[in-house]
Design a binder for these strands. Structure first.
Length: 701
RNA sequence: UGGGGUGUCGUCAAGCGGUAAGACACGGGCCUUUGGAGCCCGCAUUCGGAGGUUCGAAUCCUCCCACCCCAGCCA
């Protein structure tokens, strides 16, 4: 089955709606809503819900409302309302004139409460919050009825009116539904409907000092708005019987609630609490820090609404809790930006190149296409002259195999310009670093084509030194070093999992002249580097700042990474790194010699589960593992296998074998309390992992 | 040990009794004035496990296992 007007397959929600339509429920009407609480900024997880609600309405010829669930004046702020509206609009959705607030319905909700009281279905309860909790029972034991449960209708009416009049202190009493204190569903054990809250509300001011709970407000708000399909996240599944109970008791329009799994993204966190902790802890510069998964952060980073919408479509909707690979998000951005970004040249780490045979004062303006994907985007002129900058990375004195860039004596193409050949390397006398290159160019290759048909393997980006502008460039990487920083198994201190390299600031980058007049709304591809946009906040005419939205796919980086992994020289070093620990295990003979079984028995091998794994700052070869050996605490173990695990996070959750009775070894990075077994082969190095029904601490024999 | 959910490729995700879509990732190749883009090929004999029903099961039944959510006067 396909969605109407789309190639995407039907998801379970659309299937349900289509069935409802077929059964002529709600007179063929489809009406959804996006109901944020104005207590924080929207993030990519909200985008999933926004896309779902607005697109479903669109596809089925219905409407989608924007409604703020503002039932708790102590937590919500008007500031958030504006940012949320801006974000939804930015994503490209329109709620028309249907902007609502749960607080719009406070009068009606109050009437509903009165109705329940009159019907003997609600009562005022004087139990303290602690008592209510105690009376509620537990997951396995039923609760007890409140002593106030059987107050008369008249008394309840009087008390509730006095609650409304503000006669009681906060917490002194609440209005509760009278349902069933023995229900296996805790939500049905006489839930609170109204609580005393002497707090001004940003929309209703001082009109109320009692406020409905979310549970009492949400379903009825949906009902009032005639919402046919109320889409929400999984945790509200248990609340559905309660919402349906309210609707039934009140005899009002019944929306149909459907729950779906919220979005989790790898290498970031999504909970409001954690995002707030990042902001308040100063780990990011604010809610709109380009590393944040907030829509305002992503917008600043250079994400487009189209990319986010495509992403939301591709991840699908289901009830399975899952974590989407952030690579998919990045893919969607690249896909969109490839089509629309203007190609420009910028050099992040400049290396001076002098074209010795190019006339001293000559300047040529060369034609350069703006986007090879779309000729309609036209072209621009870029200046070429005797002194240029190229990327430092694009020159190697001693080029490895498959390195196609510049090296002594080698010829490459400068994009849109000429073939050049490296003739001479000038070095800094003190440091020995490459300071400058002297090259010659072939005047016959103007535009980058050679008449004689000779080919070059590499094409470099460049900027004319005399014409270059300067800019600061901010390179972003994943916020966390592990794929699942939000996982409770990673411990409460998810802050320790932050990626120290999530932001790299590169100053004094050289940019082609046309970039000097860039504006924040424009997306660029800096050739061979990635997609960039001007920072909307920090960029000034005096100091231009560009954010890297996402890198280009980089197959060369992959080649180098693989090479690094397989490099036999490096491997030998790894082995040395591992070796010292051997000596401490006692008189264990190394492979080759036969040992007595008693010797082996001295080594206490245990199954360990890796709970955390990360690189060690300042140590190229080490990774740090926090391993669970079932001892009620984690052991810190350093292992020299970094080359095999450029991303040590992949080890998290793996079962490994630990030599558990080694004398702890003090290293400069900390105490290493054991050793994990690893295998070393011709082209391999890796930690041995085990499978099977083994628990942390199990003895390995 | 109560209730509500979920388990299909490394990650998402179709499938609804007729013999495992697609996407990302990954591997290989072609092409290329971005090692970008594009194009082509490969990538689950198997659907948490075990039984059963059936000519036929990821889909139906039974039991089991794992994971998530619920004891706010938060939403």
């Amino acid at each position: 089955m396909k969605r109407p007007g789309s190639q995407a397959p039907m998801d379970f929600i659309r299937t349900i709606i289509a069935e409802d339509l077929k059964a002529n429920k709600n007179g063929g009407r489809v009406h959804t809503r996006f109901p944020p609480e104005p207590n924080g900024y929207l993030h990519i997880g909200h985008a999933k819900s926004i896309c779902l609600n607005f697109k479903i309405a669109e596809e089925f010829g219905g409407l989608c409302n924007l409604r703020f669930d503002d039932t708790n004046p102590t937590k919500e702020e008007a500031e958030y309302v504006e940012s949320i509206k801006e974000d939804v609009r930015w994503l490209g959705f329109d709620w028309g004139d249907r902007l609502y607030y749960a607080s719009d319905y406070f009068d009606q909700l109050y009437e509903y409460a009165l109705q329940l009281i009159r019907d003997g279905k609600a009562y005022v309860c004087d139990l303290s919050p602690e008592e209510i909790r105690a009376y509620r029972g537990t997951l396995t034991e039923p609760g007890k009825d409140s002593p106030y449960r059987n107050r008369s209708v008249e008394e309840n009416l009087d008390l509730f009116e006095r609650m409304r009049a503000g006669e009681f202190e906060d917490g002194a009493c609440v209005l509760r539904a009278k349902i069933d204190m023995a229900s296996p569903n805790l939500n049905m054990r006489d839930p609170v409907l109204y609580r005393m809250l002497h707090a001004p509300h940003q929309r209703t001011g001082n009109k109320w000092c009692i406020y409905p709970t979310y549970d009492f407000a949400h379903g009825q708000s949906d009902s009032i708005e005639g919402i046919t399909h109320s889409l929400c996240t999984l945790e509200f599944e248990d609340h559905r019987p309660l919402y349906d109970w309210f609707i039934r008791q009140l005899r009002i329009f019944a929306p149909r609630q459907i729950e779906f799994a919220r979005l989790n993204l790898s290498f970031t966190v999504m909970s409001k609490r954690k995002l707030l902790a990042l902001v308040q802890g100063g780990h990011v510069t604010g809610w709109d820090d380009p590393r944040m998964p907030t829509l305002s952060g992503m917008r600043r980073r250079g994400y487009t609404p189209e990319a986010i919408r495509t992403f939301c479509e591709r991840i699908g909707v289901a009830k399975k809790e899952s974590t989407v690979d952030i690579g998919l998000l990045e893919h969607c951005l690249r896909e969109d930006l490839n089509r629309r970004a203007l190609r420009r040249m910028a050099v992040l780490h400049p290396l001076r190149v002098v074209i010795d045979n190019y006339p001293e004062d000559q300047v040529e303006y060369l034609d350069a296409e703006n986007n090879p994907e779309d000729p309609a985007m036209g072209s621009r002129n870029i200046p070429f002259s005797r002194v240029l900058y190229i990327e430092r990375e694009d020159f190697r004195e001693d080029p490895p195999k498959k390195y196609f860039r510049l090296a002594p004596g080698r010829e490459v193409r400068l994009k849109h310009a000429y073939y050049i050949t490296c003739e001479r390397v000038v070095k800094d006398e003190k440091t020995g670093d490459v300071a400058e290159l002297h090259c010659t160019y072939d005047p016959e290759t103007r535009g980058g084509w050679s008449r004689d048909g000779r080919r070059v393997k590499g094409t470099l980006h460049w900027v004319s030194a005399a014409h270059a502008g300067e800019a600061q460039v901010r390179l972003y990487d994943h916020l966390f070093v592990v794929p699942n920083p939000g996982d409770p198994k990673n411990g409460a201190d998810f802050i320790s999992l932050l990626n120290p390299k999530s932001l790299e600031i590169v100053s004094s980058c050289k940019i082609e002249p046309s970039l000097m007049s860039a504006t924040p709304g424009t997306h660029f591809q800096f050739l061979r580097l990635g997609y960039f946009c001007m920072d909307a906040i920090d960029s000034t005419p005096e100091r231009l700042v560009f954010n890297r939205s996402v890198t280009l796919r980089d197959t060369w980086a992959k080649i180098e990474k693989d090479r690094h992994k397989a490099d036999p020289v490096r491997k030998a070093e790894e082995i040395k790194e591992v070796t010292p620990a051997h000596g401490q295990a006692g008189d264990i003979k190394t492979a080759g010699d036969k040992i007595a079984i008693d010797d082996f028995a001295r080594v206490d091998l245990r199954v360990g589960v890796v709970r955390e794994a990360g690189a060690v700052k300042g140590a190229k070869k080490l990774i740090r593992l926090m391993v669970d050996l079932g001892e009620g605490r984690l052991r810190q173990i350093f292992s020299g296998v970094r080359s095999a695990y450029p991303d040590p996070g992949v080890l998290t959750g793996k079962k490994v074998i630990v030599v558990a009775n080694l004398k702890p070894r003090q290293m400069s990075f900390g105490l290493s309390e054991g050793m994990v077994l690893a295998g070393v082969g011709e082209d391999r190095l890796g930690i041995a992992t085990v499978e099977g029904d083994l628990a942390p601490g199990d003895k390995v024999m």
